[in-house]
Nucleic acid binder design. Structure first.
Lengths: 248, 248
DNA sequence: CGAAGGTTTGAGGTCATTCAATTACAGTGG
DNA sequence: CCACTGTAATTGAATGACCTCAAACCTTCG
């Protein structure tokens, strides 16, 4: 009797690709067992909504794979991204009845969901979950604050180069390669999503990308492929310190 | 033998003005006792720095009274405020060796400080502190995200009116009065601080304040006194939904 | 191959900034 | 109490960065 391979390609917590970083990463075997009782996987196609602001919050979740965005919308339709959700990131807020933000899948996404009420009780009873969630929340706060600096004070060009540097850095970490000149990566998000991240319009994003191309700071392969011949030169344009410690 | 009244006007946790909201608010008597062992009060005059970005983080603290700001600075001197610290707010990050932001007293400030290492151990051993800190961090994240929307997408006028609405709301909560037409309050921060909060220049802040005055949306008594004849009219200018749920 | 969506490019306008000068304010000492 | 001084705030004119609106151009996928 063979096991049926699930859509996301793994079965249990022990195989989970995000087990070292997710909200459950500090849990021992017993605690993981409790979590398994209340968890289930859900998948979303690229472009699909995951949560709507204002709806009741039924579950919290970890992003297992894919990219999702948290956005807020003003009554007249202006959109600002307030969170970029990557594998191991946490969705939802324990103790909150109502969803506060729109969450949308930007690529195909797999979530590890926990029903909210049981999860809240686990937080109260098993310290490791709450501790990890605290760590993650404090990290997110730091990210949010860097982002506020970007939104409030940086120029369009600095915003774009900061984002490129962020993606390059994250990509390097993911592939376990150090940052290096000539490195290349795929943009995980569209121009529109970039614009909503940076507090710019699509057109301004496009123009700045073109300018960076023209000046040789980046080269592009299609709309999503980016190569960086001289990393230090790109970092210089972010407005941050040379070492680029700033954005994460 | 009479007790010497301390500078901040109270002696112990039982008298503490922020005991219902601070990081210690969930602690029982035993836990408070442990905290008392590692705590001490410090006061700062208006304008004084409290923490410098890059310095070792020796203590964490609760704001007992006064107003402080958390700011980040780019190498060329641009400043963005990333946190407004009011009574009961928490300063510092457990688990972090180095201070990440400049913290400055905007008014005279009194802090209830805890040495960092013992405090971190308390988090590990007494669940109530960690739980409360998690709640507070999640609240701060929501605030930071509202703020990101403001910085990324709102116009100068919307930024100013949003800030006024925020202060009005917070003031009403403090004085235990409901929001009402004709209410008045003191701005706790200068024009420059407002500008750093909103991602604007001083001049733009000033111009927008003047415009609101001219249009009768606010009236001013000196540079800091604000009265709002028609609250709904002001809220309409924030860009948020009519009920103004948005900014906290 | 054609359609649809995403992206780029262009021209023109607007809002916030910059730089500079003036005015109000608060604290100090006479 | 009032002039004095330094800081904070306002006002003005001009510039410039980013936006808006519109059209053309790629790509990707059926």
């Amino acid at each position: 009797m063979t096991k049926i391979q699930s859509r996301h390609g793994f079965q249990s917590c022990s195989d989970c690709p995000i087990k070292y970083r997710a909200v459950c990463s500090k849990c021992d075997a017993d605690e993981l067992g409790l979590l398994e009782n209340i968890k289930y996987y859900r998948s979303f196609d690229a472009g699909q909504p995951i949560l709507f602001s204002g709806d009741p919050l039924q579950f919290v979740a970890s992003v297992v794979s894919g990219v999702a965005t948290m956005t807020q919308t003003l009554p007249d339709g202006r959109i600002q991204m307030v969170g970029l959700l990557l594998p191991s990131d946490f969705i939802g807020r324990p103790g909150r009845e109502i969803v506060s933000y729109d969450v949308t899948a930007t690529s195909d996404v797999t979530l590890c969901c926990f029903r909210r009420h049981p999860f809240e009780q686990l937080i109260a009873t098993t310290p490791h979950i709450g501790q990890r969630l605290l760590e993650m929340s404090l990290d997110e706060l730091d990210v949010a604050r860097e982002w506020m600096m970007l939104l409030g004070r940086k120029t369009a060009r600095e915003k774009i180069t900061s984002l490129l540097a962020l993606i390059a850095r994250r990509n390097a970490a993911l592939v376990q390669h150090p940052l290096s000149d000539g490195m290349s990566f795929e943009l995980p998000i569209s121009r529109e999503t970039m614009a909503n991240y940076l507090g710019l319009t699509i057109e301004t994003v496009s123009r700045q990308m073109t300018a960076l191309k023209r000046e040789g700071l980046i080269t592009m392969a299609g709309n999503r492929g980016v190569a960086v011949p001289d990393l230090a030169a790109l970092m210089l344009e972010t407005g941050d310190d040379a070492d680029g410690t700033a954005l994460l």
